[in-house]
């Protein structure tokens, strides 16, 4: 996220050095008054934000050190909820699934997006807007609907199985989302489907701002399309890749809707994710402290990833 870079310039003396002292005092007191006014404008948003985001964040940290069933009095747990993760097979599975999802939600869409951007971006494509509209479409659909769509696609009588039958592969047909080993990759592919458009659109926009002289120079040096991709396109897209890595990895870490609405983490725990565990611990059979601890870890991991990616993408500039 490039936003962190734009820290505001210090609002201080903008008066020219030669001005009369009295005037400077007046101007700076004016600016000070204006900044109090600014605080007043900010106040409503800040109040709501403090109530809905900041306070619960702090409470979450506090709760994560408690044993609490949501009703009776809480007891101090120390780091118990955190250390509890290590011996918890469900949690371990959830983390493994997250890593698996990162491949499908992040790596795969980025690779596909880069390849298709490299292949198409620098040529004039007529009706580019139509293609872009279609490819980005999954991003604006509500997860509730995406879940209905993919449940149907993977259903025993759905198109995937019909296609297999058409090729005489009846033995391979199954209810994909109800299958212990196939439900996870099936959901993963749905994630790839959803994230691919975001990657491609951002990369295509990025390649358009790479100066064409760089490509000409590469051609003159006798670079083939592959060399050209690694020498010119990929370095030129560094910023876009950073944004997409952050967005999609965070998406994989916190995935909930599509999993909950299709498999509820099942069959068994074969598609369980940290947020599903969080939801179950918080509401199904309340162990609120453990749920809060998952939330804290999620937040910390998200912050670290965002900061690391920003740092990496800025380093070699």
């Amino acid at each position: 996220m490039t936003i962190l870079r734009q820290t505001p310039p210090a609002t201080g003396d903008v008066t020219p050095a030669g001005s009369i002292r009295r005037q400077r005092v007046r101007v700076s007191s004016h600016r000070r008054r204006q900044r109090w006014l600014g605080l007043a404008y900010l106040a409503p948003a800040l109040a709501v934000y403090a109530l809905v985001v900041l306070a619960p964040t702090l409470q979450g940290v506090w709760l994560s050190f408690q044993h609490w069933d949501g009703v009776t009095a809480a007891t101090w747990a120390g780091f118990g909820n955190y250390t509890g993760f290590f011996g918890d097979p469900t949690m371990r599975q959830a983390i493994e699934h997250t890593l698996f999802f990162i491949v499908f939600f992040s790596v795969l869409p980025i690779v596909l997006g880069l390849v298709s951007a490299a292949l198409t971006a620098r040529k004039d494509v007529r009706r580019a807007g139509v293609y872009r509209w279609i490819i980005f479409l999954p991003q604006v659909l509500t997860p509730a609907v995406v879940a209905v769509v993919w449940k149907r696609i993977y259903a025993p009588q759905g198109p995937v199985n019909s296609a297999l039958r058409a090729f005489g592969l009846d033995a391979l047909t199954r209810g994909w989302l109800g299958d212990y080993s196939w439900a996870l990759p099936a959901l993963g592919l749905a994630g790839t489907w959803a994230a691919f458009g975001l990657c491609m659109v951002l990369f295509v926009a990025g390649t358009q701002s790479i100066p064409s002289e760089l490509y000409d120079a590469a051609r003159v040096d006798g670079a083939g399309p592959v060399r050209e991709f690694f020498a010119v396109t990929l370095p030129g897209l560094r910023g876009q890749v950073a944004v997409v890595v952050t967005l999609t990895v965070l998406g994989a870490i916190r995935v909930f809707d599509i999993v909950w609405l299709t498999t509820r983490g099942g069959p068994g725990t074969s598609t369980i994710t940290p947020t599903i565990v969080l939801y179950q611990r918080a509401f199904a059979n309340p162990d609120v402290g453990a749920a809060a601890a998952i939330g804290v870890v999620l937040a910390v991991v998200s912050l670290i990833i965002a900061l690391v990616v920003v740092r990496l993408s800025e380093d070699d500039k």
Partner: peptide, 30 residues
């Protein structure tokens, strides 16, 4: 306009972009 204490307040507000909603929803619910 500029804001009193914006060096602290602006990052504080940006923090919310990075904290996943899933992390705060449990205490928020209670």
């Amino acid at each position: 306009l500029g804001v009193v204490g914006e060096k602290a307040l602006f990052p504080l507000i940006l923090l919310g972009i990075m904290i996943p909603m899933e992390s705060i929803v449990v205490p928020l619910y209670y």
